[in-house]
């Protein structure tokens, strides 16, 4: 039940620079951190366009955001998490929590997509606000806890994880 309780926990950890564990080492996860910021920017642009009822622009920005977010989730779910689970032997813990939060975020992204189609700014911004809160606390947990754990665990036996991860998140 770790996952459920952690997901219900709400506000995540300190922003990255304020609560970074000591395990910097080789950072396989650095591109994922960068992608968090990129997704934030795309989200903010789509939200601003929806608020100003610029639906053509909103649709384009949102599509890009959605594709980038999906690539990010995919990289984690198909490459990083399995590699970490295999190397650490932890399969029901933190990665499970993150997967469940991905599902929750996908549900909100769906709601936003419906709002783009119907040009419903209130629905788009309402689901967006919820997604933003969820996304930020999720990113903080990943950047402060899970990524350092992954970097530490996978630094020894990473194999081709780094390349495969990059290929998925860069949609190659």
């Amino acid at each position: 039940m770790t996952g459920v309780k952690a997901a219900a926990a709400g506000f995540g950890n300190n922003p990255p620079s304020l609560l970074r564990t000591k395990a910097a080492m080789t950072s396989i996860t650095e591109p994922l951190r960068e992608q968090h910021k990129h997704c934030d920017d795309l989200f903010a642009a789509a939200e601003e366009a929806a608020q100003s009822a610029h639906w053509v622009e909103c649709k384009a920005q949102f599509a890009e955001f959605r594709s980038e977010l999906e690539a990010h989730f995919s990289g984690e779910e198909t490459v990083l998490f399995p590699a970490f689970e295999q190397a650490s032997g932890m399969s029901g813990g933190p990665t499970q929590v993150m997967r469940m939060e991905h599902t929750q975020m996908r549900g909100l992204v769906e709601q936003m997509a419906g709002a783009v189609d119907t040009h419903d700014a209130a629905e788009f911004c309402g689901a967006g606000e919820t997604l933003l809160m969820l996304m930020q606390q999720h990113n903080m947990k990943e950047e402060n806890i899970l990524y350092p754990m992954c970097d530490q665990t996978l630094a020894v036996a990473s194999g081709d994880v780094e390349e495969r991860l990059k290929a998925v998140i860069e949609k190659k």
Partner: peptide, 27 residues
């Protein structure tokens, strides 16, 4: 105004409401 709606939403998830079905924070 952020904490109360967000905790509402999270606890509804905990009780089994799917993300799409729960009222969003602004609702």
């Amino acid at each position: 105004y952020k904490i109360v709606p967000f905790l509402n939403w999270l606890h509804l998830q905990r009780r089994g409401v799917t993300a799409g079905a729960a009222p969003n924070m602004k609702q």
